[in-house]
């Protein structure tokens, strides 16, 4: 399939899912009333539901999904490893830890921005640690190991915060947030995260040639004129910005960045660069679809979308591992 045709198809799919996300919800609101509330105003309840509840939710599904998809494709290309995913460099875990510390310290009540700010600060710490490691002339393997170590440490500290949590209500809040959701977010969250994510997307797209050259390993990539240290920085910072900003407003949503590049890759020429944008679009479509499903699977009790993506993603991951083992033997 040609790249432009693939992207057009994915955009059509996203538009359908976006519309679905706007029109489906627990509030009894007909599609026409909903659209009227969104665009023209009218009945106050409809306006509030559409503009302040469903629109931010759908927009976050779009941009967070896009970030997860493009970051997954970038990291898989960069590491030449089809099992890589955005959480790998430790950003998701440290961002979660930052948010958990805000809950724990009770600052979450102070301002609605305290939580995303804490998560962003956590992501920033991860970036600084990774950059300090990447600044020395290091290999890609060192980066992965540093990411794994960082993730484990953040996970341990998050558990510690849960363990020491002053009241059960705080623990409940923390756990609920860790499950990942794009529900009950406002347009402020969209405006807060979008510029950071867009900067991340730009950094990743600027390294697309390096990703292609890395198909042959680092030595050949360098001989093709690739500035590897710069490409490494761009990709790590790009992923940290996009995923860090996403985690800051939605909590951890796993597996989309892992699964989407696999679904999209067979539809492309398999060049890492031609996977980036279709993978972002595919991530947006998958998160929007998962978020709609989270609303309707158990109507009485809405699921967290992070739980749903993990439920679908983890078996898929197992299947990938099994398949790559078969191919290796």
């Amino acid at each position: 399939m040609s790249p432009s045709r693939l992207s057009s198809l994915l955009i059509v799919l996203i538009l359908l899912l976006f519309a679905g996300s706007l029109l489906i919800g627990p509030a009894a609101l007909g599609p026409l009333d909903g659209l009227k509330g969104l665009f023209a105003g009218g009945e106050e309840a409809a306006v509030i539901i559409m503009r302040e509840v469903r629109l931010p939710r759908a927009l976050l599904g779009l941009i967070v999904g896009f970030s997860l998809g493009i970051c997954g494709a970038a990291l898989q290309g960069f590491l030449r490893n089809p099992l890589a995913e955005p959480g790998l460099i430790g950003v998701s875990a440290t961002a979660s830890l930052g948010a958990v510390l805000i809950f724990y310290s009770g600052l979450a009540g102070a301002s609605m921005l305290a939580l995303p700010a804490g998560a962003l600060a956590g992501a920033l710490v991860a970036v600084l640690v990774i950059l300090a490691i990447a600044a020395g002339n290091t290999t890609t393997l060192t980066l992965i190991l540093a990411g794994v170590a960082l993730s484990s440490l953040s996970g341990a500290l998050t558990s510690l915060a849960l363990n020491l949590s002053p009241n059960p209500f705080a623990s409940y809040e923390i756990i609920f947030w860790l499950l990942g959701s794009i529900k009950d977010r406002s347009m402020v969250h969209v405006w807060l995260s979008l510029p950071l994510m867009a900067a991340g997307w730009a950094l990743i797209l600027s390294s697309s040639r390096a990703l292609d050259a890395l198909t042959f390993g680092e030595a050949t990539a360098a001989s093709l004129g690739t500035n590897l240290p710069r490409a490494r920085l761009s990709i790590v910072c790009g992923v940290a910005l996009a995923v860090g900003a996403g985690t800051a407003v939605t909590g951890a949503i796993g597996f989309i960045g892992l699964v989407v590049p696999h679904l999209i890759r067979p539809l492309t020429d398999r060049m890492p660069s031609s996977l980036l944008i279709p993978s972002g679009l595919g991530g947006a479509a998958l998160l929007l679809a998962a978020d709609i499903a989270a609303r309707i699977v158990v109507p009485a009790r809405e699921l967290n979308v992070g739980v749903l993506t993990a439920l679908i993603g983890a078996p898929f991951f197992l299947w990938l591992v099994a398949r790559s083992r078969r191919e290796a033997t």
């Binding site: 890395l214 198909t215 042959f216 390993g217 030595a219 050949t220 060049m271 890492p272």
Partner: peptide
């Protein structure tokens, strides 16, 4: 190089 890596099924 001697290393004959081809990372993706291009």
């Amino acid at each position: 190089p001697q290393d004959r890596t081809i990372g993706w099924p291009l």
